[in-house]
């Protein structure tokens, strides 16, 4: 009986492993640098984590269905360039010879719709044309990065404060803060809650998990698998566009190379949080904890003055270790299930 209690404790520890790692890291860096455990440092951390954390929320949905979305980093750049361009240059209608300027809410909505459209295209190609998600999103990754550069010919849009006369001021507030809380972190929190509820409490969430677990049986039980898949890519695209807007507002500049290789951070956060690359399992809470682990490693090591090269090495080790433990947990679960079945006999 004792051993059973032990293994139960073990299971609880393993399930909360990423969280435990996070706590250990926080304690470690607080000792290593006495300025680490401060409110201002933690809000800054939340602000940094928000960028790829939001990407990771979308990525979690995609990975659960057994797919992957490599295009998000490029969509970050593209959405930023579109928004930056609309503020700085407006939209010139050549046939009418006029330049239209839009208000900030309009620009935000337009950019988000654009992100959603990229997701729709991804989803359509993957489901209706049967191209592998890796290939499809690799393609759209290049396409979006290309368009981001084409928008300005490679230049940066650096005056995105807007003009009072044109009625397009206020974009920078997306990158600002409410009191001491960064707006980015607030958006991250809101999206995380929406994402978690959507995945755990709605029929759609169950469909996502079902499609990822076993697509054939999901189809047979009447789930419209294609529709579910298209929607998850749209979610991912929308998330990426939101990150593009936040990033542009924070930098007060839209740079076409923004978001380069961020998809890797998003995938890492999801995997650290226990999302299985094979599909079928994963949680938003896990992903967020995973995102914070990466964020704490990045910022903590920077504050301790560790070189960028070591940061990369350590990040790699943490990711592999997380997946190894994940595998161990699965094996253990299977073993325990077998054990209890034998006892019941």
């Amino acid at each position: 009986m004792k051993s059973k209690d032990n293994s139960k404790l073990m299971m609880t520890l393993m399930k909360g492993r990423t969280f435990i790692v996070l706590v250990v890291l926080l304690i470690f860096f607080s000792i290593a640098n006495n300025k680490f455990l401060q409110v201002t440092t933690l809000t800054m951390l939340a602000k940094h984590v928000a960028l790829y954390g939001i990407l990771a929320i979308g990525m979690t949905f995609v990975i659960i269905t057994g797919g992957i979305d490599l295009s998000v980093g490029s969509v970050v750049g593209l959405a930023g360039m579109i928004a930056g361009g609309m503020i700085q240059e407006g939209v010139t209608l050549q046939f009418a010879g006029v330049t239209l300027y839009f208000s900030v809410p309009m620009i935000v909505i337009f950019s988000i719709i654009l992100g959603g459209l990229v997701g729709l295209v991804n989803g359509f190609i993957i489901t209706k044309l049967g191209v592998a998600p890796f290939i499809t999103t690799l393609g759209t990754m290049y396409i979006c990065r290309g368009f981001a550069n084409l928008r300005s010919g490679g230049a940066t849009f650096s005056s995105i404060a807007g003009e009072e006369g044109l009625g397009n001021t206020g974009f920078k507030s997306i990158g600002g803060s409410i009191g001491i809380i960064p707006v980015g972190a607030v958006i991250f929190l809101i999206l995380a809650v929406i994402g978690a509820v959507l995945l755990k409490k709605t029929a759609f969430g169950w469909h996502v998990l079902a499609v990822g677990g076993n697509e054939r049986s999901a189809r047979l039980s009447g789930i419209k698998a294609d529709k579910v898949k298209i929607i998850v890519y749209i979610i991912s695209g929308v998330m990426a566009a939101i990150v593009g807007l936040i990033n542009t507002a924070q930098l007060a500049a839209a740079h076409p190379a923004s978001g380069d290789s961020w998809e890797m951070n998003a995938i890492a956060a999801a995997v650290l949080g226990g999302t299985s690359m094979a599909g079928g399992s994963g949680t938003i809470v896990g992903t967020i904890v995973g995102a914070f682990v990466i964020g704490v490693i990045n910022d903590g090591m920077t504050m301790c003055g560790v070189s960028e090269f070591w940061q990369k090495v350590i990040r790699g080790f943490v990711i592999i270790a997380a997946v190894v433990i994940d595998q161990m947990q699965r094996n253990m679960e299977a073993k325990m299930a077998l054990q209890s079945r034998n006892e019941n006999k």
Binding site: K35, F36, T302
Partner: peptide, 8 residues
Amino acid sequence: KTETILQS
């Protein structure tokens, strides 16, 4: 990185 350095 600048934000982080300004903290430490």
